[in-house]
Amino acid sequence: MLSINNIEVVYDRVILVLKGVSIEVREGSITTLLGANGAGKTTTLKAISGVLRSERGEVTKGAIELAGRRIDGMRAHEMTKLGLVQVFEGRRVFEHLTTEENLIAGGHVRDKATVKQGIDMVYSYFPRLKERRQQVAGYLSGGEQQMLAIGRALMSQPKVVLLDEPSLGLAPMLVEQNAAMALTVADHGYVMENGRIVLEGQADKLRDNSDIKEFYLGLNEGGARKSYHDTKHYKRRKRWLS
């Protein structure tokens, strides 16, 4: 469905952020991208969705294909029409529109009937939003805003949804559990570091990988939980080969 072949991303024409990243997302599957802060996860997503340009970044090498069609160099709103949509880290809802208007805006590229269907669908996923439909989005709680952001993305009937830190603010959750959760939900996983993919594989296989266990799940060989302090220390020393 979506395939990324060896892309390089440069900001401001001088800062090389992604150094040859390849990712393959199959139809009907969930793929997760793991990595420490600054590894390049968000940049990868932005490169795919095409908003890189407004941040003065560009894809200098490689290709991104959606259903066999080259989409690198395309602008974000054009991709939305093709069925690719991103949900940003942090909640970027339109604060001055109501919940429902946000959803309608999300269906900007679709016709009226689809929009109506879409609204009902989103309300069925997130009944909470229905209760708040006439409220201005700025007054929603953090979790509700995140629901709205995801719901809004679904309004364009996408084939591929890119979620950046989707659990942020949804429910109280410890940082170390995110990766575990992601790997439980996903079918396939990639691990990034320093702008490169350093590990990939089936999600359940990754979950059993000892390195992953150490770095992201915070478990030692025996499965016992280590203290957070130890993890951090250890992590700083050891690096995967690139």
């Binding site: 709103h77 949509v85 970027r92 809802v93 805006a105 590229v109 364009s156």
Partner: peptide
């Protein structure tokens, strides 16, 4: 309100 988010939903 959010120009990047607006672009991403297809505006």
């Amino acid at each position: 309100d959010q120009d990047i988010a607006a672009e991403i939903i297809g505006i």
